[in-house]
Design a protein around this nucleic acid. Structure first.
Lengths: 333, 333
DNA sequence: CTGAAAGCGCTTACAG
DNA sequence: CTGAAAGCGCTTACAG
């Protein structure tokens, strides 16, 4: 089966390629009804399908964007990506998702690959360690927006959570419920990942505001696989925390595993709040109090910001945009 | 900033485009060292990046495949997609994911769109209601493989679970634990979705084999939003089931919500097994006994099958391939 | 060992 | 109202 091209249609309809192309692009302004019908019929009988690759080459636009996420394992990421896809599809853009797996090298590879594929723009959850590349895209006025994270001194706008507020909501709720010894666990901050750094900062700030001491031992950062150990260390303290804020969904899960394994009761033995509204929060026993991010809005806003950049070059940037977190009170504190 | 093309590199290096192209494609066989270096240097100083769209047009291969899932909300789907992406990336193929949202019209749209984008092949979780299109692709020898579902009389090979066995494992385990009144709930089967049909069939077969009566009332199929109601109906029966098999992750979640809301105890009041090993199964209270699908292997196998078809046209099909489910015994039965 | 030329399948400014 | 021609950025068979 030979592929049928615009030339075949032209021949069959006895018109030129130009006319067929006009037809395809709905420039009917001054096209004779009869011509139109002949083309229609030719397309129908030949089963013609336009070749978008050829079109893209000529138009220098693929109508697709790339999304490079830092780590697809987070529930947050999955939901945001879905929102991005929805928003793009409804503007007739396609989306290519790549998972950098927290690895700056992979991120670099994907950025280059996607640009070679001529995507019209990029949404990146930056690993943070490709500053030169980021800057280069900025200089080239290539449309990029960051999501979930910022990169210091790189003026690419970012859409993210008000992380200070997220921690504040949690700490305040703990305090309201009578807790004073409050800890926080996040995953590793060696790469200066924005949300983790800010959530810790927010926790410390909120503790101070509540007139509570900031105890270094109560603040743990460790990679996923070491969180069980972090829990053990924490609870071994002379005065162990009575409440713990989980920095994200993965941390929360590790905490719940630990709690179950050691037969602890929530909230009697340990109160828990998780940042990120995990799927099972509402029907877990006990139902988990969480700080929810508006994942859908974040993704939507990210896509809109990028599409705007793509379609009206040199739109001024409004800097970062922060969404407000929401406390969902359930039974774990 | 003008985009720099292969011509620019050629000019700068004082060679022809052909030579640069040879260089880019690593055909160094008989290229003078000096030429090589000049090209290298030109690429470096100009910051040249190849345009893959142009390349694809010429080569008639985009080195990307399309994946159209029926419904991205299933955890199964997410995991399989991830496995597909991994397998593709390691063969240097890109992946474009589309979510048909259980809608045959959307599916049709995506199939056409992706083919217009010249993807080299398609992995489809078929909605089942685009038979003409499926057949047409088959006739055109366009590389396609189905995942998770089959379509009757369309001889596109499918990779899926041994669903009969999945139900059998569950029923047998219930019976072993002393349960006799066993029900099953799946989502809607009006569209003849393979796994749902087969899981019900498997349930009925296994019940018979165990010498247990098949009670029509114990078999419920309803859309996600009506499952709470189905539970209510089930438990209102004179002789309500004491054990329930959840047809997939979404059904399980609805059941758990119902159970929590109505203060039932698992497994004392109701034993539960879920098909699909949900993320929270192990640390839920009680931990949920599940039938796990080898999602990673399924995705990997699907990608490999497709890539094989793409790279050696006319490879003979081996028909459907079924993976074995695994019973993960925990505390919910 | 390297280059000129044709062609992949489109679009569009321009001419008539 | 429609068409001839040039061009998007590559690749490759062929020639020298």
């Amino acid at each position: 089966m030979k592929t049928v091209t615009i030339s075949d249609v032209a021949t069959h309809a006895k018109v030129s390629k130009s006319t067929v192309s006009h037809y395809l692009n709905r420039r009917y302004d001054s096209m004779r009804e009869n011509t139109k019908q002949r083309i229609e019929e030719a397309i129908e009988t030949l089963g013609y399908q336009p070749n978008i690759v050829a079109r893209s080459l000529k138009l220098k636009s693929t109508r697709s964007i790339g999304v490079i996420v830092a780590n697809i394992l987070h529930n947050f990421t999955t939901e945001v990506v879905r929102a991005i896809e929805d928003a793009c599809i409804s503007s007739d853009y396609h989306t290519i998702i790549c998972n950098a797996d927290d690895d700056p090298l992979k991120e670099k590879h994907y950025i280059e690959m996607l640009r070679a594929k001529q995507v019209d723009g990029l949404i990146i959850f930056p690993t943070g360690n490709n500053r030169d590349l980021y800057q280069q895209m900025l200089n080239a006025r290539y449309p990029v927006v960051f999501l979930d994270r910022t990169v210091e001194d790189i003026s690419i706008p970012s859409i993210l959570l008000d992380n200070l507020q997220a921690s504040k909501l949690a700490v305040e709720h703990f305090v309201e419920q009578g807790y004073r010894r409050i800890g926080i666990i996040t995953t590793s901050i060696i790469n200066h990942i924005t949300p983790r750094i800010e959530r810790i900062k927010g926790y410390e700030k909120a503790m101070s505001e509540q007139g509570l001491p900031i105890i270094d031992n109560y603040v743990r950062t460790s990679k996923s696989t070491d969180i069980q150990q972090a829990m053990a260390d924490l609870l071994k303290l002379d005065e162990p925390p009575q409440a713990i804020l989980a920095g994200n969904d993965l941390v929360l899960i590790e905490i719940l595993k630990y709690v179950k394994q050691h037969g602890l009761r929530i909230p009697e033995d340990l109160a828990v709040i998780g940042i990120d509204d995990v799927s099972f929060a509402s029907f877990y026993t006990p139902a988990i109090t969480t700080i929810a991010q508006p994942t859908f809005e974040i993704g939507k806003r990210g896509a809109e910001a990028l599409l705007k950049k793509i379609n009206q070059k040199d739109v001024e940037d409004y800097g970062n945009f922060r969404f407000e977190p929401e406390l969902k009170i359930r039974d774990s504190v």
